[in-house]
Design a protein around this nucleic acid. Structure first.
Lengths: 182, 182
DNA sequence: GCGCATCCTAACATCAGTGTTCAGTTCCGA
DNA sequence: TCGGAACTGAACACTGATGTTAGGATGCGC
């Protein structure tokens, strides 16, 4: 097993995020293995896609628990800041999840995604209760806004429009402070 | 021509935005015409996709000039507010453009997109010059943030998480005022 | 009714991607 | 050096989508 399954997932994510219509032959080539070998790891395309999604969700889960987003005793905004930092490098994986509509009906994935969402929304609610986040905005929306700003940063970094190092700062100040002058 | 080409574009956008892998047979069925007829309007799939993209860009162009975004004498933030209002209903078309990576290398589309982007960035710069938008943030980023917040609203409306009527207000207050308490 | 345009269904060729099989190789440890 | 495990290229069948073609129905103005 010269090329680990992990490395394949990694490459596959990059290739499929860049162009979701990419062939398994493309993926195999990019991963430096033969198409035949790829099929020994993942029996079908579907299986590979699901593994990719599961991997991405695993990493987000880890990032969430590392950042202590679900920890009610932790400052929710600090947790969100940590999460932002960790999640931005997962951009390609998120991009893949966003674009791969063929997985939209998978109940398991939907459920996992909903749980992640709930965790973030709860953190926002706690921040609202602590009067750190405006209470006149739906927490659901604030969570959405955070998520899509992360996507925005990732796209901008990808396109070379902003420096990677500025990413999480831009997301947080834009989300919390806004871009207008006071 | 019982079914206008415009109506076909409309339906095709909806179908393809919902699932980019949709077949031309799917599109034809959804539009209420036969596959054969669809081929008389658009000789190839590629041609249909390009027409879709061109249509979306046309509408954005119109929205931009209607809102007076390029008009240096107009209040840039009011223009942006108008633009937001008009652009949100174009969500499905934007979603299609975002997800359809097969068009990414088309030079014509890239150029048109870049011009649109430039218009918005310029408006942001004018707002910065008038001290209405923070000068410590790259205008490029503020433009990106605006765009992705629009996408966020569209997705949230689509998913029934927020009311359509709240859309543009949420985008603007989130972008300019931020979601944090002062 | 005639001619023209438009749409339809049905069939067809073509092609690309998926998934399978197999014989041959390389490599690594016993 | 032997044996097994892993990988390979090459071939194959199968499927589904694209694009083409032909023949027939429908409708509309003249």
């Amino acid at each position: 097993m010269a090329v680990t399954t992990d490395a394949i997932l990694d490459t596959a994510t990059r290739v499929l995020a860049a162009s979701p219509a990419a062939t398994l032959a493309d993926v195999a080539r990019a991963a430096g293995i033969s198409r035949t070998t790829l099929f020994t790891r993942f029996a079908t395309r579907e299986e590979l896609l699901l593994a990719l999604a599961a991997d991405a969700l695993d990493r987000i889960d880890t990032a969430i628990s590392d950042a202590g987003v679900d920890d009610a005793s932790r400052d929710p905004l600090l947790a969100l800041a940590d999460l932002t930092e960790t999640v931005i490098p997962l951009g390609a994986r998120l991009g893949y999840l966003l674009r791969e509509r063929s997985l939209d009906d998978d109940e398991g994935l939907k459920e996992r995604w909903a749980r992640i969402d709930r965790g973030i929304v709860d953190a926002i609610r706690r921040a609202q209760a602590a009067e750190r986040v405006r209470a006149d905005l739906p927490a659901l929306w604030v969570a959405d806004a955070w998520f899509w700003l992360v996507v925005a940063v990732w796209e901008a970094v990808e396109a070379g429009r902003i420096a990677p190092v500025d990413g999480s700062r831009l997301v947080l100040t834009t989300l919390l402070d806004g871009t207008g002058t006071r």
